[in-house]
C-alpha cells in the first residue's frame, strides 16, 4: 500500500435546497483514501452516505449544491470543474457500483453494448475488437460467462446483474470505485460471494474503494478504514480493527452494540432509542446529543471538534466513551 492519496475530501458540505429550506445532507466531511485502500462509510438511512457518493462523482440533482470544500482526485480539485470537464473524469478515474443494480442497465441494449460505450467514450484509442476482449476478460474476472456479453439485462438474474455492474465499473480502469450498498438487494449467499469477489479484485487491481453500507458486518468485512456517519456529519474515522475494538464516539459504540457478533461471546443486542434528526432543522451543537447517553451540558451548545486520538483514529465528541 503506497502512501499516495488517490482522493482527498476536505471540508465537504453539500446542501439540498427545498421549498421548506436548505437541508444539509453532508456537513463538513473530510477523509482521504490511499491507493489500494478501502474506506467504508456506515450509518443509518438518510445520514448522507449516498449524498457523499453522489458528490464525489458530482452526480447531483438540480437542487443540490456543493457549498464548500474540495474533492481532490489525483491531485486535481473536482468541485470547480464545469460539467463538460467533469464528464471526462467520470468512469475513467472514478466509477460507481450502484445501489439499484436491477435498473442500472438500459433494458433495450445488450450489457456488452452498454459497457462498450463507456470504453469508447473514455478510451477512444481502443478498437472495438480489443474492447470486446477486454469486456470478456472482465466478465471472467467477476465470475460471468463471456457469452453473457451479448445478452440483454432482463436475461440476467439479480446476482449476475450485480456482477455485470461491477464489470462495467472496472471497464475504464478507474483509480477509485464507489460501491453504494452494492449487495443490499441480494440474498445473503450471493451477497457474500460478491463481496469476496470485490475484495479479491480490489487487491488484484490495487484499486481504491469507497464502500457504503448500513450494514456494519459488510463494512467490517471489506474495508480497511471505517468512517461513521451521523446526520450528515462524520463522527468517527479509524482503521477497521481499531474502530471495532475501541469505538470512541457513543454513536459508534451504540451501532456496534446493535449488531450481533458471530465469533465473539453471545450478548444482548442493544437498540438505540430515538430517531435520526430532521436535517431541515438539525439540533444545535452535536447532532447526536438528543439520543446520546453520554450527553453533557456543552453538547447542545457547541459543535464538537474533530480530534486526533492517535493511531489515525479521529472522532468528534465532547464526552467520548472511556478509553481503556
Amino acid at each position: 500500500m503506497s502512501t499516495e492519496n488517490v482522493i482527498e475530501v476536505k471540508n465537504l458540505t453539500m446542501e439540498y435546497s427545498t421549498r421548506k429550506g436548505n437541508v444539509s445532507a453532508v456537513d463538513n466531511v473530510s477523509f482521504s483514501i490511499k491507493r489500494g485502500q478501502a474506506l467504508g462509510l456506515v450509518g443509518e438511512s438518510g445520514c448522507g452516505k449516498t449524498s457523499i457518493a453522489k458528490s464525489l462523482l458530482k452526480l447531483l440533482p438540480d437542487n443540490a449544491m456543493i457549498q464548500q470544500g474540495q474533492i481532490v482526485l489525483n491531485g486535481k480539485d473536482m468541485v470547480p470543474l464545469p460539467e463538460e470537464e467533469m464528464r471526462k473524469h467520470r468512469w475513467s478515474e472514478i466509477s460507481m457500483v450502484f445501489q439499484a443494480a436491477m435498473n442500472a442497465f438500459n433494458p433495450v441494449y445488450t450489457v456488452g453494448d452498454q459497457i462498450i460505450e463507456a470504453i469508447e467514450t473514455h478510451l477512444p484509442d481502443v478498437s472495438e475488437k480489443d474492447a470486446r476482449v477486454k469486456i470478456e476478460n472482465l466478465f471472467r474476472m467477476v465470475g460471468l460467462a463471456p457469452e453473457m456479453v451479448d445478452r440483454y439485462p432482463h436475461e440476467y438474474s439479480g446476482g449476475m446483474r450485480q456482477r455485470a455492474v461491477i464489470a462495467m465499473a472496472l471497464s475504464c480502469d478507474p483509480d477509485i470505485i464507489i460501491a453504494d450498498e452494492p449487495t443490499t438487494a441480494l440474498d445473503v449467499i450471493v451477497q457474500d460471494s460478491i463481496l469476496k469477489e470485490i475484495t479479491t479484485l480490489q487487491d488484484r487491481l490495487n484499486m481504491s474503494m469507497v464502500y457504503i453500507s448500513h450494514d456494519v458486518a459488510v463494512i467490517a468485512e471489506v474495508s480497511d478504514r471505517v468512517g461513521v456517519m451521523y446526520a450528515g456529519r462524520m463522527v468517527e474515522l479509524a482503521d477497521t480493527e481499531e474502530i471495532f475494538i475501541r469505538p470512541i464516539h457513543p454513536y459508534t459504540y451504540a451501532l456496534m452494540q446493535s449488531f450481533p457478533s458471530v465469533t465473539g461471546p453471545k450478548r444482548e443486542l442493544v437498540a438505540l432509542p430515538g430517531e435520526p434528526p430532521d436535517l431541515l432543522h438539525p439540533p444545535k451543537g452535536c447532532r447526536f446529543h438528543p439520543r446520546c447517553p453520554n450527553r453533557i451540558e456543552k453538547c447542545d451548545q457547541e459543535q464538537p471538534e474533530w480530534k486526533d486520538y492517535g493511531d489515525n483514529h479521529f472522532c468528534a465528541c465532547w464526552n467520548p466513551m472511556e478509553i481503556n
Binding site: R87, V108, E117
Partner: peptide, 23 residues
C-alpha cells in the same frame, strides 16, 4: 436509474438524451 448510470459513465449529453432516454 440507467439514466443516472449513463451520466456516471461520463457519456456526452447527446448520447444520454438520444441513445438512452429517447430510445
Amino acid at each position: 436509474d440507467y439514466i443516472e448510470t449513463a451520466r456516471a459513465k461520463g457519456l456526452p449529453e447527446g448520447v444520454i438524451r438520444n441513445r438512452h432516454a429517447a430510445r
